[in-house]
Design a protein around this nucleic acid. Structure first.
Lengths: 276, 276
DNA sequence: CGTCGCATTGAAACTTGTCAAACATTGTGG
DNA sequence: CCACAATGTTTGACAAGTTTCAATGCGACG
């Protein structure tokens, strides 16, 4: 339909979110722990304190500014974080829950969903390892959306009041948090453009390219990945019906742009997809 | 079409933005200065330092937390703010401009617009007196959207680095800024729901009710107001063509829900409009 | 091996977009 | 102050895109 615009939108989308946030904690966090080891959620009881430190976390590069002194590092470690395990289908938090903490996805994935009494729903985002959750609650003191795990998942819990204290002491940490919140604003702007100006075909293409980039940034294949969400959830995110999502997948299959086998996705022709 | 859902969406929209932000400065700021006195922009050269203080501003209740001590007030006043006048059609900032400051609309109104090379555009928001602009720039250090004045307007300029300094010193100010950023996230979520799930008719209804509430919060009539934006800009915001916007206005006219005379709007039946 | 949830596909209906023409409003210069 | 140009708005007819409804297919899991 249009020019090199889908790719651009995809790039804009959570390029922001990717850089976005991360307060991933140590433990066994190899960069791959995120998606690969979701089975480990089974091994532990839900909710338990994590006896580890941000300073030892293998993903700390994404979680905090690079230029911390060791004294600042020590302060950061005093921020009592814990991890929490959430089973597939369970809520990390729900709209109207009291806001206490924000979260960083350490393993697994989530959807955030804004809902109406009348049943109307909008998925406002999908969060994978290394991305932030819960910033919607700062405004009113209550969460504004539900965060539902798409698979058994693990998050780092960052008590927001403590984070604010740390941010008053460490200038670069303060700016980092501001950047994360701003990234979320920019991410949502891009999504608004997607919803407001793109055709169904372009939206699905942008969605796949965006996911692809985020997986790539985590060290996974950009070409092949597994969708954790249903067609209906994708539709709810992209502002279309599940049948339309399915038709678009079929069209991409026919045009040899993407090879879909259920939830398994292989992007055959990323350039072609970007030009849709 | 649906139940009492449009009103709910309208309420969600910038109820957030309304509470949102405000760093409105003193000068002649009666609450009405915003919309009523836009002619005063003519009286002054563009860009000039404003020799006034936040602590004397008649709108400070919306700009800062209520529980400041006088010592804190003094600190706040040390934050060098100035005002800036922007003529109708001119940009307060443009995408890719270096980010230095955020802005609070003191008088007049703006649109923020995200653009693509290929000409695709999305209006991501309309800002009226008392609302914030520019938070999209924190993330990358460059603005992500254009902010264009819809009429001759005045903004307070808040240098962001200085704001961060103040926020490290005044806890309640820090939290206030976080709330403002979070409000923007929540506002955009609501807009995503509007774009993703509502019919053209419902979107226009929600848009009018939302504007109505914001004017009311500023002390103006909730029933009668003047649109500063064109049908095309409304369409670009709501994800539809200008002809569709026009048809919806005509439909509301026919159904005796709204009385439109060009850009002059009178909401005749707000309850009916909310039930569209 | 049957069931249940999810996915695909087709045909018809509906909503919105596109194109075109007429009309209204605003601003400008004579 | 008027005429005219430019811009914005309304309306209609038709086309395109998306949803709706319905049927079928597929695959994981007990």
């Amino acid at each position: 339909m249009s020019t090199a615009t889908v790719q651009e939108a995809a790039a804009a989308l959570p390029v922001a979110a990717r850089k976005a946030v991360h307060f991933i904690r140590a433990i066994d966090a190899t960069p791959c722990a995120g998606v690969a080891r979701q089975a480990s959620a089974e091994e532990r009881p839900s909710k338990r304190p994590a006896p580890v430190r941000c300073s030892g976390c293998s993903m700390r590069a994404v979680c905090m500014p690079a230029d911390l002194t060791s004294a600042e590092f020590a302060k950061l470690d005093s921020m009592i974080c814990s991890t929490r395990h959430v089973r597939r289908g369970d809520a990390l938090y729900r709209a109207r829950d009291e806001f206490q903490s924000i979260y960083a996805v350490r393993a697994g994935s989530f959807k955030t969903i804004v809902m109406h009494r009348d049943g109307r729903e909008q998925v406002t985002g999908f969060q994978i390892a290394g991305e932030a959750l819960g910033l919607d609650g700062v405004c009113t003191g209550h969460h504004n959306a539900d965060a539902i795990a798409l698979e058994d998942s693990v998050v780092c819990v960052i008590p927001f009041a403590q984070l604010e204290t740390v941010c008053r002491e460490i200038r670069s940490m303060q700016h980092h948090v501001h950047q994360i919140m701003s990234s979320e604003i920019v991410r949502e702007s891009s999504l608004m453009m997607l919803l407001g100006t793109m055709s169904a075909e372009q939206r699905v293409a942008a969605f796949l390219l965006n996911l692809s980039q985020r997986f790539k940034a985590l060290g996974y294949s950009a070409a092949e990945f597994h969708l954790r969400m249903t067609r209906e959830e994708i539709g709810c995110y992209l502002g279309m019906k599940l049948e339309t999502v399915s038709r678009m997948f079929s069209r991409f299959q026919r045009d040899k742009l993407v090879d879909t086998r259920g939830k398994q996705i292989r992007i055959v022709d990323p350039e072609g997809l970007a030009l849709v």
